[in-house]
Simulated scan of single mutants.
Amino acid sequence: MTREVFEFELVFELPSTENDAYSLSDAVFAAGYEDAVIGTGNPKLLGVELEAEGTDATDAILSAAKNILRNLPAGTRLREFRPDLVSLADVAKKLNVKRQALQKRAEMPLPSLGGLYRIDELADTFGKIARDGGRKTRLNLSQAMKWLAAGKAARQLNARLTMQELDPLSLELRSKPNF
């Protein structure tokens, strides 16, 4: 099976103890993600943006999340997978265009919540643009493909977290939701 590279973010909820930003960064690097971008601006959250390889996006995302979680303080739980809901500004940045140019070049799907868009719907839209060719292909789609490709899996994994089918402490699938 072919392995692909996916770009995504993981947001971890940290235990209420004091957490040193350098120790958290070291934990991510020790898990094998030396190129990850680490966000420690909120003392209760750890954001990790990274690229990981897998046979599919779900495999890559879950494998990376489990590897990192093993190195973080006990009681850390996975809070969110990204990209899921994104702003036009997020998308424009990934495509290396201005937000206004993005709106002019692409027929965007309807926003979902508060002006945010479902990443998998955007990926479908940009896939159609790439297939159709023409002037609209000036969007830098190749730069964003690893990020767009992770979107559907991130949305599905977030749904599993919400439905309590995925344990946020171990990232193992549960047989039944705990309601």
Rank of each mutant, 00 (worst) to 15 (best):
D26F: 04
K44Y: 10
A52N: 04
S23M: 09
L45E: 12
E9M: 09
S25L: 06
V28G: 01
S25H: 12
S23L: 15
E51H: 12
V28T: 04
E9T: 10
E49T: 13
E53D: 11
L45A: 03
G39S: 12
G54T: 07
L10D: 00
I38K: 12
I61G: 00
A36R: 00
P15V: 08
L62W: 05
F8A: 03
G41H: 14
E53I: 15
K66V: 09
N67S: 14
D59F: 09
D59H: 15
A57R: 05
L46I: 13
G41N: 14
E49F: 11
E34C: 01
F8W: 02
N67H: 12
D35Y: 06
A65K: 02
N19Y: 05
G47V: 11
E49A: 15
A65G: 06
P43G: 10
K44M: 01
G54E: 01
E51Y: 08
A52Q: 01
D56G: 07
T40N: 12
D56N: 15
A36Y: 01
N67A: 14
T58I: 04
S63R: 15
F12P: 02
L14G: 02
V48Q: 07
V37F: 05
D26E: 11
F12A: 06
A57P: 08
K44E: 14
E53F: 08
D35P: 00
A60W: 02
V11I: 14
E53T: 15
A21C: 04
D59V: 07
N42E: 08
L62C: 12
V48E: 01
N19L: 13
A36E: 03
D59W: 04
L62H: 05
F8T: 01
G32Y: 07
S63W: 06
D20Q: 08
F8V: 00
P43C: 11
L24G: 03
E34Q: 11
A31R: 02
L10K: 05
E13N: 13
S63P: 03
L46Q: 07
E49W: 11
E9P: 00
T55P: 00
L24Q: 01
A21K: 11
S23V: 05
L62G: 05
G39D: 13
A60K: 07
A31I: 09
